[in-house]
Nucleic acid binder design. Structure first.
Lengths: 223, 223
DNA sequence: ACCTGAACACCGTTCAAGT
DNA sequence: ACCTGAACACCGTTCAAGT
């Protein structure tokens, strides 16, 4: 090991290491895991790298956490915390309430592009349940009968998850999107109708999300 | 190594090993990878295990394939091959055409529960593009204008992907679904509206998929 | 053209031990 | 109560080599 060069300034107690080492805890572990995931993607999260970043030994993590899977679950639910108004403002416009809930949900996941693909495959955490409850209430006060609530919730869930997972994946490989477009345009002979639809060539993801959601809500709305 | 007990019957040339060893090729590699994925899930696919199953050395695989990722891409697209009528039967009922295309797509993915979660995160293979073209044609002949085709395709894609990924995930942990239901019912105090919706308690996934799809098509249909 | 084993730089997690 | 290093049983992939 190299000698610590610390003798020079001895007034203050030795400065903490470059990346400061707060005491280990579930919370800092989760926060650091999210950093790592944001920076390196799903495959970038490694117990060893996580420990490195925290300036601790790998096995220290296992005091606060049972398995690596738990880190994923905790990071995921943490990212889904709802930061909006605690109570949905009582609006007369149920449609825009629902759209707001779902767009906020989508935005939260897009801020952490690894999160959407994880969500449908893991147990529902408290923050996920809160968001589902929020959605259910909005639907319910929109006039959806209890017997139709199940289908309505799942339909919207499916749409939002599919949209966000797809969008987040394309975002990652945004660099070669131009190339993909080129390729797809070139494939127009074999797939003419896709070509006419200009699939992938339109990059107004937000607008497309909103429009499709509108169609779904049209169908769902109690006529 | 144990002695080969082959001397007894020497008429035919020595029988091939228990699990026969066809010559290595891209196709048998992909087929075996699908077997492995079906049996063990995404994390179960390992180059070493794959080689074992094929009775070859690990590195032999790398002659036919560049990286492990390629195996995933090939397995995924292979599973998505469309086996329906080559030309969509000319039906006057555009709605049932579209429903058929999408239900077949969903069914193909549910036969291989690992596939749905993979699809939105990988490049579109030829079989995926074929299915998208099929869908586009059905939409187009249903009267959807070219300018609306993009949104229509993505909306349906999003819905189907979200639904199938979610369904496939719950299928895996079907054993503890009863427990999850119990837990969720117990959480009804904290999430009352979810409780009323009987979320997760209804296990008619196929019906829910069809109903939600109907709503989306209601919204999409040119009024 | 096709297959191979040894080796490298990684993984997650068990365990027995330290404070 | 909290942290640790050594060790085990794995990974994907490079490389130099065999036929």
């Amino acid at each position: 090991m190299t000698a610590k060069r610390s003798g020079a300034r001895s007034k203050r107690p030795p400065v903490q290491e470059p990346t400061s080492q707060p005491p280990l805890s579930r919370d800092v572990i989760v926060a650091t895991a999210i950093e790592l995931l944001d920076a390196q993607g799903v495959d970038g999260l490694t117990m060893r790298r996580l420990a490195d970043r925290l300036g601790s030994g790998v096995m220290s993590l296992y005091w606060h956490v049972d398995k690596k899977e738990d880190v994923f679950d905790l990071a995921l639910d943490s990212v889904l915390e709802y930061r909006g108004p605690p109570q949905l403002v009582e609006s007369q416009d149920w449609r825009s309430d629902i759209v707001h809930v779902l767009e906020d949900w989508r935005a939260s996941m897009l801020r952490h592009p690894w999160s959407a693909a994880l969500l449908p495959r893991r147990a529902l955490g408290p923050n996920t349940l809160s968001r589902l409850e929020l959605l259910s209430k909005a639907l319910s006060s929109a006039g959806v009968a209890d017997t139709d609530l199940n289908v309505a919730i799942w339909s919207l869930w499916n749409y939002v998850m599919g949209a966000t997972i797809t969008r987040a994946s394309f975002d990652v490989s945004d660099a070669d999107r131009a190339a993909a477009q080129q390729r797809l345009q070139h494939l127009s002979e074999r797939y003419p109708t896709i070509g006419r639809s200009r699939l992938l060539l339109d990059d107004d993801w937000d607008g497309a999300f909103r429009k499709g959601l509108g169609f779904l809500l049209d169908g769902l709305s109690p006529s």
